[in-house]
Amino acid sequence: MAYDLSFAREVYKNSEMGHWIKMCMQCGVCAGSCPLGPHWEHSPRQLFQMVRAGKKEEVLKSSSMWMCTSCYNCIVRCPRHLPITHIVHGLARYAMEQGMANPQQPTHRFASKVFWENIVATGRVGEAGLTMKLYFLDGLGAGIRMGLEMKDVALGMVKTGRLNPIPFRGKIKGYAGFQAMLQKAAAIESKHKEAKA
């Protein structure tokens, strides 16, 4: 593998906030700050150095950028003011655009399919439906097992009003406007894609 800036330049240009990657000084604060840190394959810092080293495959196929929960600890602490959360999301999105994101990555599956379909359908998240969909992503057996495992948590959440067990029916007020927004966003995005191409 050779250091080659063509991938880095691609990321600097095309990935959201990607140009910030060049400013990383490899101190490691982001990795240490991340609550899910130990579960990442590559810490943000490592991803950034890999970008600079031209490791396109490894970066875009990494599951790491899908692990971010947007807690913003890293952004707050980064001594170089890198918007790490955004960079990482940008990389995830770029991987998707490039068709290199692992379709089996759970967050990817959840975000790009379950969550999206759920919210687009009504204009708001239906918590119960979303949870069910998530649990049954890997089939009936896995769904039941997962549901049983989490039932205490779920009941607790219902009790405290954190989870509405009744599925949301109908549409939000101004659904048409919501739809229009989505269409506009899609149009902007395809324009961007054309421009990049």
Binding site: K22, M23, M25
Partner: peptide, 14 residues
């Protein structure tokens, strides 16, 4: 100055 060189795309390899 270090940051400037990074901003200009200089890559640092330890």
């Amino acid at each position: 100055f270090y940051r400037k060189v990074q901003d200009e795309g200089g890559v640092f390899i330890k």
